[in-house]
Structures are given as C-alpha cells and as structure tokens.
C-alpha cells in the first residue's frame, strides 16, 4: 500500500479469496486480495474484462461470501447484502414493469419504512432531479436511452443513502459522449455528497478523473490487487483542463503501460493453461413474425 490509512479502515478486504468448484480442485478467481478504503475516499479498481472485477463488487456488497478471508465494514464482518452498501449494476437492473419513479420508490419505501407517502414522494423527486430526469419521471425503462437508464439506476442507489457506493462498471455500456456527461455528473454529486465510493472500471481516463486512488487488478484466474497509484490531482477537477496537466499525462502513461504489461504476461500464462469456454447459446423465445409490420 502506498498510502497509509490511520485508524480502522471504513471498508476492508482481508486476505480474501473466492473460487468455484470442489475444494480440492478449486479454481480461484480472486486470491489473497487485500484492500482498505477510508471513509469518504473514492477508490477506482481498474482491470481487463474477465479478471474478476464484478466478483470483487459482489464480495464487497455481500452478495457473495469469500471462500477465504473476510470482508469488513467499520470493523464488522459483512455476511449479507444490505442497503448500507448501495450497488449500481452494469446492466442497470431496473424493473421493467415499473416507471422511473416506481423503481426508485420501491427502494425508498423499503429502506425508509417510517417515511410517510408525502416524504417518500419528496425524497424520490429530489434524487430524480439530482440526475436530471424530472421530465422522464413517469416513463418506463424501455422508453429510455441507455444513459438515462443508468441515471435512474444511480438515483435509485443514491436514494437509499448508502454509506458506501459500489459502482460496477456503471458506464461501460454507454457511448463515449453519454459516458463523459455521466462522469461529470457523478463527479459533481460526489464532490457535493462526499461518500465512500468503490468504482470498478476499465477506462483509465475515467479512473483518473474520478478517483483518489487507482488500484489495478491483475489478470485472472487467481487475480489479485496490485499496488495502488495515488491520484494527487487537485479537486474540483475539470475534464477540459485536466488533460493538459503534465501530472495527468504522466499518471495515465504509467497506468497504461502497467496494464499493457499485465496483458502480455497474462497472454503468456494463458497459452499454457487453455481454459475451455462453456457452450452458451442465447435464450430467445421469440417466434418468427407472422404479422405485417414486424
């Protein structure tokens, strides 16, 4: 660890390993992962796809239990998921039969059962406004663009008022322009609300723009966290001026070359142990169309 955190870390992974299969022939996805996140710190974890980033989020959220080691929050072991660790999923995971308002309302009602219906409405409206979706309040998810859906997902997660935000590649399914807009929004919201955030990403620019600390995840299987790159750029950050700073360029070059090195190493490894891919077919119930205009 390049940065020393004083006191009990807010969120902590201690010697965590997770694997699948029977104990003797277990394949570890993550092994010997140690991470300490301080309160109100913004940590970005960067890695290639398939390296186990989503599994890491599941572990932090409590959706999965580690095979070895412990996940702790404020020194207490995390055994199950809960609203204190709000997760924003890559696939939005909005409920398609509920409107924007309904999706957020469901979460708010569950997390704040003591709210009156007027309070619920006020609370939901506040977060819809925060992500600039007031006009689309009554639309169904399938009527929204990808970026708008992810905004709803963000609003839902924020509306739960979690102590930790776990963002699992929230922007990787979006186009570059939408992504930039949402990055700015996340940045603004974070600078206002100051929350502990763990962001999973595969975008170096995004990580530098948002995070206090960037930790690369080595290639799986048996991936682990490498040494962190501290981001000492001044806040508030602005993407237009940021890229001109030599510190930014230096950091980006360092991280990129480190990641490229990882990739080469991994390729060498992979050629020896070729893992058979599962035979997966798309599941699609749609029948061929028999009516016009389809």
């Amino acid at each position: 660890m390049s940065e020393v955190i004083t006191g009990t870390p807010f969120l902590e992974l201690d010697g965590v390993a997770i694997g699948f299969g029977p104990e003797k022939t277990r394949t570890d996805i993550l092994r010997d992962v140690n991470l300490e996140v301080g309160e109100n710190e913004f940590v970005a974890i960067i890695g290639f796809s398939g390296s186990g980033k989503s599994t890491l989020v599941s572990l932090l959220a409590g959706l999965e239990r580690p095979t070895e080691g412990e996940v702790r929050m404020e020194g207490v072991e995390v055994t199950r998921p809960g609203p204190r660790r709000g997760v924003m999923f890559q696939s939005y995971s909005l409920l398609p039969w509920l409107s924007v308002f309904g999706n957020i309302e469901l979460a708010v009602k569950q997390v704040f059962p003591s709210f009156s219906s007027a309070e619920v409405r006020k609370h939901v409206d506040r977060y819809i406004e925060m992500v600039n979706l007031t006009d689309a309040c009554d639309k169904a998810p399938h009527e929204l663009s990808g970026g708008m859906r992810q905004r709803v997902s963000l609003a839902r997660t924020l509306a739960m008022q979690p102590d930790v935000l776990l963002l699992d590649e929230p922007l990787s399914a979006l186009d570059a322009l939408t992504r930039a807009v949402l990055q700015d929004e996340i940045l603004q919201i974070w600078e206002k609300e100051k929350k502990t955030v763990v962001l999973i990403t595969n975008d170096v620019d995004e990580a530098i723009l948002l995070a206090d600390r960037i930790i690369p995840l080595t290639m799986g299987p048996e991936a682990t966290l490498a040494d962190a790159f501290p981001v000492d750029l001044k806040r508030p950050r602005d993407r237009r001026t940021l890229t001109d700073q030599p510190a930014y360029q230096r950091l980006k070059a360092e991280i990129t070359s480190y990641l490229v090195g990882l990739n080469k190493e991994a390729r060498k490894l992979r050629s020896k142990t070729l893992v058979a891919m599962p035979e997966v077919k798309p599941r699609d119930f749609k029948l061929p169309s028999m009516m016009p205009g389809r």
Binding site: A61, L63, R80, P81, G82, P83, R85, G86, V87, F89, S91, S93, L95, L106, A107, Q110, V111, M160
Partner: peptide, 10 residues
Amino acid sequence: DHLNVARVLR
C-alpha cells in the same frame, strides 16, 4: 440482477 436488487434492498 433483479434478484440481487431485491437482496441489496433486503
């Protein structure tokens, strides 16, 4: 994912 949402919301 929907079930995960339900789990996070308890």
